[in-house]
Simulated assay, not measured.
Amino acid sequence: MAQPAVGFPATAADFPGEILDGIDRDLVRYGLGVVRLDEPLPNGLFRKLGSALGTVTPETAPDIQSYVEDGVVLNLRADAGITQDVSLQPFASNPLSLHSEGSGRAVADQPRYIVLMCVEPGDNSASTVLVSMDEVAAGLDAEDLRLLRATRYADAPGVPPVVRSQGDHVVFAFRDFQQDTLRWVCEADGASPEAVNGALGRLLTRMYEARGASGVLWSRGLLVVIDNTRFFHGRTAGLPRAAARTRHLKRLRIR
């Protein structure tokens, strides 16, 4: 899997300099900003970067507070081993299925950008996988898209449909539930359960068969900004926590 083709080198000491301009330019063009910093930004500048992109979202989940700094910086340390606990999966070594962030929330509560910065890549660490929503949408036919535009999670009132339009782009609010059951409702005329399940199945197939998928191979100082309305993201498996060096990323979510 190829690494993202976009990106530019920069010096952390020069922040903001041309860093913010470069990120803004690449987010508009590609939905992705990649900066190869010589060193990670300190928390104060990392938060400043997030605030320049939008409104930084507080990390309020009780189960993850030991990983949170300054209320908004989430330390993604891969120290939870192999776990099926959903709240701990961001810190686990097992793979993380493809998803859009906050797909079970209202549009106003879904992050626009995910900012990830590498402090420690770790030994044989996992890669972050990026899949273009435009490419996935191009692989679905008109009937599948019609059904998915009228389909939403059943157990999350106020959430958007699986597919919506935003400007020139098709946006998905969806995650691969893997072994868990996805309960859905569909308001499309003439939509049978078989047809909707078929459309959802073809969506999952296109997500995992996307030829343009890229994998971020982390190195210290690498900073990646993901437009959550243009990319699915996930994670490959990494070594269990017995590894000599544990992967450590910092994350901000931006609305």
Rank of each mutant, 00 (worst) to 15 (best):
N124Y: 10
S214R: 14
V159M: 05
G31M: 12
G54E: 12
E59L: 10
T55N: 13
R29I: 05
W218L: 05
G212R: 14
M1R: 15
R164V: 09
I23G: 00
E120M: 13
T57P: 02
G212I: 14
P90K: 13
R47W: 10
G238K: 01
V129I: 05
T11V: 10
L74P: 00
D63P: 12
N94Q: 03
G44N: 12
P157K: 15
D176V: 06
G122S: 02
D70L: 09
A191E: 04
E135Y: 08
V159T: 12
R235H: 01
R235A: 00
T128H: 07
P16A: 11
D155T: 09
A243F: 14
N43D: 14
W218P: 01
L239D: 13
V170G: 00
V136N: 07
L222H: 08
D141W: 07
V162N: 00
P160Q: 15
Q89H: 07
V196K: 11
M207Q: 05
L200C: 02
R211I: 03
T128I: 07
V225F: 05
E194H: 14
A5S: 13
D134H: 15
D21C: 06
G167R: 06
H99P: 01
L249S: 03
L200R: 00
Q3D: 11
A191G: 03
A191P: 04
Q179D: 12
E135L: 13
G44C: 09
L222S: 04
A213E: 04
R164C: 10
D79C: 05
L249W: 06
T60D: 13
D180I: 10
L53V: 02
E194I: 12
R25S: 08
S127M: 07
C186F: 11
G234F: 01
P157L: 13
V170S: 02
Y30R: 10
I114W: 03
F91G: 04
P95T: 06
F232H: 00
K48S: 13
D189Y: 07
L27V: 00
D38Q: 06
Q65S: 11
L223S: 07
L96N: 06
I82D: 14
D109Y: 06
R183K: 11
S165M: 11
R241Y: 06
R247L: 12
I254D: 13
L74H: 07
V216D: 02
R235P: 01
V119F: 11
R230N: 04
D141V: 09
G167E: 08
Y153R: 14
D134E: 13
L130H: 02
P95S: 06
S219K: 11
G238R: 00
E135M: 13
P16Y: 12
F177R: 02
R112V: 04
D141M: 10
D85T: 12
N43S: 11
E101P: 00
D176N: 09
V159Q: 05
W184N: 02
D63W: 11
G50L: 08
P157W: 14
S103T: 07
A137K: 10
V86G: 04
L76R: 13
G33A: 11
C186Q: 09
S132Q: 04
D141I: 10
L49N: 00
V159P: 00
V35M: 08
P90E: 15
R152F: 05
G167K: 05
I64F: 08
L98G: 08
D144S: 07
D180E: 14
R149E: 02
R253P: 01
K250S: 09
E187I: 04
P9G: 05
R146N: 01
G81M: 01
R112F: 03
